[in-house]
Amino acid sequence: MYTTDMTGKTKAEAVAEDPALIAAFEARVANDEFIEPKDWMPEAYRKTLVRQMSQHAHSEIVGMLPEGNWISRAPNLRRKAILLAKVQDEGGHGLYLYAAAETLGTSRDEMTEALLSGKAKYSTIFNYPTLTWADIGAIGWLVDGAAIMNQVPLQRTSYGPYARAMVRICKEESFHQRQGYEIMMHLAAGTPEQKRMAQDALNRWWWPSLMMFGPPDDKSPNTAQSMRWRIKRDTNDELRQKFVDITVPQAEAIGLTVPDPALKWNEERGAYDFGEVDWEEFAAVVRGEGPVTKERIQARQKAWDDGAWVRDAARVHAEKRAAAKLAAE
């Protein structure tokens, strides 16, 4: 059950890459072929993927915390079971993604250490607190909804193990999105207190959800290269627009108001115009200055530190078993 330790592996030397290999690689990618772990790939491609996949895995794991905050307080047995299963799914996604990223030569332990030291990032959305039960609905509806927009195209991403992990993850995410919307629908049709709870959750989660697509295209320096490498298939702004266009009618259908005075249907574009995201806030959260960033990292650090003796015991026990087996042969 424990990951293969890859720390002993020698790192690729920083040598100039053969232009013929690069050309062949670019041609395969342009032809929509999958790149597999043993295939030759440019170092920059490998690095970009490790960064993106580990960031994605960390987001799944840190993302367990805000929702996990409500498992013990879920309002009935059915909701409790669904939420627990959902948060468990996120853990499972984290696991596949770490495993997929490990095929590129970075171990899970290295990735975890990068998360805890603040070197590796995770989605900014998980640095906001879950205050009421409606936040569980809002996260499923908006955050998983935004995640699906980001992730559906990744099922066709150029790196094979990543694309395959995403196929399974997307199926589960679409279930998560529906259960979140169903919670909101129920609250919005409930007592005045429940409706207030639902509207308050939408007010707090709307803008952070729009930030999940990343900086605007003119400030996203990596987009062009990532799109050429088929690591990304749509730009941040394209995905953000798509999310707004799908989500606004969903809010209207259950009688909730999207907290954006500038929101207006644009007949000519066939899309909604919407207000400017607070990019200063986004930048601050990326820097680690989100409202509950410290709590999130502290919780992961605590799980990691408190679990150290368990991981050690499992390793030592496995070694004892292996030695005993060898002695018996």
Binding site: M1, G68, G94, Y98, A299, A303, G307
Partner: peptide
Amino acid sequence: SEWCGHAPVIEVDLSLA
């Protein structure tokens, strides 16, 4: 369920859940 998100390793987190 109190363990969810806080277990010593992801595999244990999944099995306790």
